[in-house]
């Protein structure tokens, strides 16, 4: 299932996002916007981080690296197809690592990546979508990457 972000109000999706992931996801505020992951950037040495860091580990100078919206596109570094899923996840699904232009690698579930179509190096873009169900069967949202639509 891929969610049409415009169909659900931002605050509705916001409430469905896993609380642990909330600080890392910026939802679109208008239909023309796309979701982004929120990383951080050290004001002293310029290093990017995802997840956000409390202090820049490189130079220890910036104790509150500034939040920045990361590029929502990337390339698939590697992946696997999960058949024996952790509790709440619906197998089979693809999950892998996506390299984004800031020089970061993002661990992410992948969607619309059927076997045969999925390929290392493929161009992907970020979406916000259901990633699993909680103990009560409620949909829990998070981020995913999907192939860039041509």
């Amino acid at each position: 299932m891929t969610t049409d972000n415009n169909a659900l109000r931002v605050d509705t999706i916001g409430n469905l996002i896993d609380p642990k992931l909330k600080p890392f996801i910026k939802l679109p505020e208008s239909p023309s916007e796309k979701p982004h992951l929120i990383g951080s950037k050290c004001s002293s040495c310029g290093e990017y981080f995802f997840p956000k860091r409390a202090i820049c580990p490189n130079c220890l100078k910036d104790e509150k690296p500034e939040d920045i919206l990361l590029d929502n596109k990337g390339k698939l570094y590697t992946y696997c197809i999960v058949k024996a899923a952790p509790l709440g996840f619906d197998a089979p699904y693809a999950i892998g690592y996506v390299d984004i232009p800031e020089g970061l690698r993002i661990f992410s579930p992948l969607t619309e990546c059927d076997k045969g179509k999925i390929k290392i190096g493929m161009d992907l873009e970020l979406i916000v979508d259901k990633i699993r169900e909680d103990e009560a069967g409620q949909a829990v949202y998070g981020y995913k990457f999907k192939p860039v639509s041509l």
Binding site: D18, K20, Y77, Y79, C80, P86, I95, Y97, F107, P109
Partner: peptide
């Protein structure tokens, strides 16, 4: 939260 488990990590390693 994102569905990580050690087999998933090593599956990714294996693919690459």
């Amino acid at each position: 939260v994102m569905g990580f488990s050690p087999p998933i990590y090593f599956g990714n390693v294996a693919t690459r």
